[in-house]
Structure formats: C-alpha cells, structure tokens
Amino acid sequence: MSSDLFWILISAMLVNNFTLHLFLGLCPFMGVSAKIATALRMGAANIFVLTITSLAASFLNAYVLPHAPYLRLISFIVVIASLVQIVEMTIKKVSPTLFRELGIYLPLITTNCAILGLAIFQTNRGYGFLEGLAFAIGAGLGLTLALVLMASIRERAELADIPALAKGMGLVLIIAGSLSLAFMGFAGLSTP
C-alpha cells in the first residue's frame, strides 16, 4: 500500500509530470519562471493549494457528488476557490511573513488548470483520500521541479546572446520541449 502511494507520487512528479507531460499549470510555467526565487515560491504555493484541493475533492467525492454528479465541475470550482480564499485570509492573519512570501500567488493559482485538473484526474482515477494526497504532493513537486528548472535555464539564457527571432516565448517553448523530451526518460518508471 505505502509503495503504491510512493509510485503514485513518483508518477505524478516525473513520469506524467503535470506541466511537461500533461500541459497543466502552463500559465505559471511560462509566466512566473523568469527568476528562480519567484519560481520556488510559486512552486511552494502550488504544492500547498494542490494539497488543499485534493482534500476538498476527496471530501466532495465521498459525501456530496454521489448525490448530484452533474454538479461536479461547479462544486469543485466553488469549493476550491472559497477554501483558498479562507486559507489566504488565515495566513494573512497568522503569519504576515508567509503571506508576503506566498500570499500573492494564491489567488492566481486558484484559476489555474493544474488545480482543477488535479481534482478531475483524482476523481476520474478513483483515488481515495491518501492516494489523492500522494497524487497532489507529487503533482506539486513536479510543478515545482519544472518551474525551477525552467527558471534556472531562463536566468542563464537571459545572459546569453539569444538571436532576435528566438527572444521571448519561442525560446521558452523550445526549452520546455527539450525538458519534456528529457523527461521522457522517466517513461515506464515503476517497480521492477
């Protein structure tokens, strides 16, 4: 059982990396990956929100949605958004420092496809509470990994003599493609 959880985590993080394989969370991946420090904070905030999302989705799947399956999408969105809002306010009250570090990223993340994607994938795959948690943490780590890799490469590329036609998002996409190629090495990673 625990090894199953481990492989769910590894799978979400490396094999089917949310960003590089499933194209989820691309907005922060492209937009907030210019600096490593920012990318790390964004990643941390993502792990946090994904975990909350997973918990919320598990709860909804277990107790609410069996009665009204057609409300799935709407209830996910509403519950996640309000939960994040509540957490944001709590952090602001309890730890202003943490809020400065992570807070401003939270509202941005709420409408991020990675969050809703996680809830939907978790539901489609029939993950329970613990599996969902492992899935969320793995996805969050995968997002953070992709973000930080991209940020460190972009910081280096920024100092390079990039040809005019590749300046901007063209190069970022080529780098993302190369990263995605490299991540194909993890294909089929599982217990021997």
Binding site: F23, L173, A176
Partner: peptide, 9 residues
Amino acid sequence: PPGGFLTLG
C-alpha cells in the same frame, strides 16, 4: 507532449 511544445515553439 514534447511535439506540442516544439510545434508551438
């Protein structure tokens, strides 16, 4: 997936 990134790139 890499083809998606590369094509748009």
